[in-house]
Design a protein around this nucleic acid. Structure first.
Lengths: 342, 342
DNA sequence: TGGTAGTTGAGGTACGTATATCACGTAAAG
DNA sequence: CTTTACGTGATATACGTACCTCAACTACCA
């Protein structure tokens, strides 16, 4: 015979179907002793609830909200596209997802959106935003209302989020460091580090990892202080030009954050792009082209498709109270060169 | 209202439930005109069959067979472990998989096993084996019996297989080449290329990709003819020792196939392992340790977990006649360094 | 006219689970 | 002794689909 059903449990435990149901769904009105009898039967027969039949019966729908920064970042756009695609392909999985766009540089707006989420109309929330104390509080509130919360790309530790879907920024920084050091080939000189803002936890951690490897393994290369572009193309042009004026032996550039379009333009106008080792984060249309043209040497990437599907799977598992298949949910730090472009 | 059901289709098309059922399941006894009416209704309402309800009703079980080489390869062992784990985690997905072990170096045995597969007790087959004309024929036979067939890791082109789950060997070879060239840092010298056998299509293609990049981009490095170990540790020791005697400027070693344990041992006994750039394929317990110890510089990997889950998803989709979500099924060429070890 | 084949409808049962209602105990409280 | 609350069983309906049977209708041919 196939998998045991609730009927088998009822027979094995010597109780009625109704009681099995009460126990399995943690409904009240069952003596502790009876509960145990049923649970033993479940154990003995190795019963596993058929989630799909259950969802069919209860007309379950998984209603998720994705809170994403609204802005010019190609990475977020790529992520959104992957999300739309995944939702489309998941027809039949009873998943619906709404996207809540949040002005990327307004910390208060994030909190407003989070607080405005209709907890009773949702079954889970995924959040991509920098960590602030207010966000932590808002997440805690969502958790209080019984909603599973997943942090996306940027972790929200000590906020009570159920899960983090993303890569370890410190390791990502180390990986970038090794590529920079080895591709620079024992030459000595300076490396530029550029990001939009060092207020983001990711940037800080990447920088730490990068510095650690450079100091350990490539002491002949000196890593310059982080330049912050503040997402401003003009400012980017200026600080890059200035950096090239004041450093004679520039070997490479490490771009830790978004804003690769502006950065690449600034680098192009120096006329020295081809000689530099450039390592950037996130595979987007622009970094892809730059890789193909040999302008960027390596991209450290987290696969957006994997991020999206992992977030959806984890949220579902949290809703169902089922186990997470850890091996599948670990997001890899992809190293993308021209040769292994997906 | 939620997703349309067969009832909605029946109403929309002005026919009975039975007729909708006949059309949807391609049963005979429906006028062409009526078929069209129903299909139009399906189109208009955007009906998608609820696969899980359908599987529930028809008591479907997906019975797959995995034909895998039986042998000492750590890669295959890792793959098997991932398969077992995935099957365990898929309880509730109505999937069962049997593993058919085949002596790895007996081409006839593969064919015997394939021919002995009980087509009527199976819903799909995944095959990991080198390509031979006999295998092609056996696959064609399986297809004739109506079974979906997926080629794993090593493609079986022109065999009629439904899908290939694995990476492009040529691109993988190119990727290895770039890493070798760049990590060798403009020094000139020779690179050893080692595999167990150049009869395998993978090895040939990897070699082609590797050579192409080396010739294009690193002409100062000369790539030596492929050494074949034939899975024999003693032979491996001998040919490696001989290669070190006759080449004075060895810069690196590219290991294209399995047998990394024996190769690493042979390299260790030369005492020059630390100075070499070593690029190998497949992340296994031994290559992982060698990466950590700095003996191997880079591993080109195809994630076994992804391979397994992709094969299962594709086989299921083929059984259901549903679309494949291409973006999800593209296996990435992973570059694994010590710093981004998963 | 009757026969036959092709087409359609009506309705049922089943899959495994959720959920509701009602009835029947038993034991404690009044 | 009655009342009440609690624990349990019996039974039904539903979810969306598959698959079966039986009846009925149409069209065509002999």
């Amino acid at each position: 015979m196939g998998r045991p059903t609730v009927h088998d449990i009822a027979r094995e435990a010597g109780v009625s179907l109704a009681t099995v149901d009460r126990v399995l769904n943690a409904r009240p009105g069952v003596r502790a002793q009876t509960v145990e009898r049923v649970q033993n039967a479940v154990q003995r027969l190795g019963y596993v609830r058929d989630t799909y039949a259950a969802n069919l019966a209860r007309q379950r729908e998984y209603r998720f909200a994705f809170v994403l920064p609204d802005g010019a970042s190609q990475f977020v756009e790529t992520f959104k596209a992957a999300l739309q695609e995944a939702i489309g392909a998941q027809i039949g999985e009873r998943i619906s997802a709404r996207i809540e766009a949040v002005p990327s540089h307004d910390p208060h707006a994030v909190v407003r959106v989070l607080n405005a989420l209709p907890a009773d109309k949702l079954d889970g929330v995924a959040i991509m935003t920098p960590e602030t104390p207010q966000v932590r509080d808002a997440v805690a509130r969502l958790k209080d209302e019984g909603l599973p919360v997943v942090a996306l790309v940027s972790d929200l530790p000590s906020s009570g989020r159920d899960h983090f879907v993303g890569i370890n920024s410190f390791q990502a920084g180390r990986t970038a460091g090794v590529l920079m050091g080895r591709f620079a080939c024992a030459k000595s000189g300076q490396v530029l580090v550029v990001t939009n803002s060092m207020h983001a936890r990711d940037s800080v951690e990447r920088r730490l990892g990068f510095d650690e490897v450079m100091a350990e393994t490539f002491p002949h290369i000196s890593v310059l202080p982080s330049l912050e572009t503040h997402d401003d193309p003009d400012r980017t042009d200026r600080i890059i030009a200035e950096a090239f004026r004041s450093n004679s032996d520039l070997l490479g550039v490490y771009s830790m954050g978004p804003g690769n379009v502006a950065l690449l333009n600034a680098l192009r106008s120096t006329g020295r792009l081809q000689d530099l080792v450039v390592v950037a984060h996130e595979l987007t249309p622009s970094t892809r082209i730059a890789l193909q043209d040999g302008e960027i040497d390596a991209v450290i990437n987290q696969n957006v498709g994997h991020l999206v599907r992992s977030a959806l799977r984890v949220l579902r598992a949290k809703c169902d109270g089922s186990e997470i298949f850890e091996a599948q949910e670990r997001i890899r730090i992809d190293i993308v060169l021209r040769e292994n472009l997906p």
